[in-house]
Simulated assay, not measured.
Amino acid sequence: MAHHRDEDEHVPTAGIVRPYALTSGRTQSSVHLPVEAMVQQLPRAHQREWAGHDQLDRIVLACEERTSVAEIAAKVGLPLGVVRVLLGDLIEDGYLETAAVTLTDSSTLSERKDLIERTLRGLRAI
């Protein structure tokens, strides 16, 4: 006896998209983004409504305040490499920018500690 599926029966679909599919197979960003690099929204990002439903929306929303690459990856729950590629796209499209976070010889101990702590928080969250 053949078993026929009821028309109203729900067929589960895969809810996971492979990371390389999000980046069209790209593994490198054209923008150099170390894990400690700080990223923030540009005014152009406010001209578009970011609903937060897809990965790009979630990344832009995570950058409302200056945030490190590592923290962004943790917030959106995506692999660091994927986030770097998508951040690079958003930077090239003019929605985000990297903020200078390089330490110099004149950086204070407090600035150095703050950068290290932010980086560690982001790495732990990944």
Rank of each mutant, 00 (worst) to 15 (best):
S107H: 01
H10L: 14
E36M: 05
S106K: 14
S110Q: 13
R112Q: 09
D57S: 15
S68W: 00
R26C: 02
E65T: 10
Y95P: 04
L33M: 10
L86C: 07
E65Q: 14
E64L: 09
W50Q: 06
E92C: 01
P34H: 06
D8V: 04
M1N: 05
R48I: 06
V83A: 12
A37E: 14
M1L: 08
G25C: 08
G122H: 02
A2M: 11
A45R: 04
A70K: 01
Q41D: 04
P79W: 13
V76T: 02
T67P: 01
L22T: 00
R18S: 07
L56M: 11
V35A: 15
R84G: 04
A45Y: 04
G94K: 06
Q47F: 08
A62C: 03
L42M: 15
A62Y: 08
A125N: 14
L109D: 15
S110R: 12
A99V: 15
V60L: 04
L120A: 10
S110T: 14
A45H: 01
A37K: 15
L109R: 12
R44S: 12
E64Y: 06
V82A: 12
G94M: 07
G122T: 04
A100S: 11
E64D: 09
T23Y: 07
G25R: 11
L90Y: 03
E7A: 12
D93W: 09
V83N: 13
I59K: 09
H3G: 00
M38T: 05
C63L: 03
E65C: 00
L115P: 02
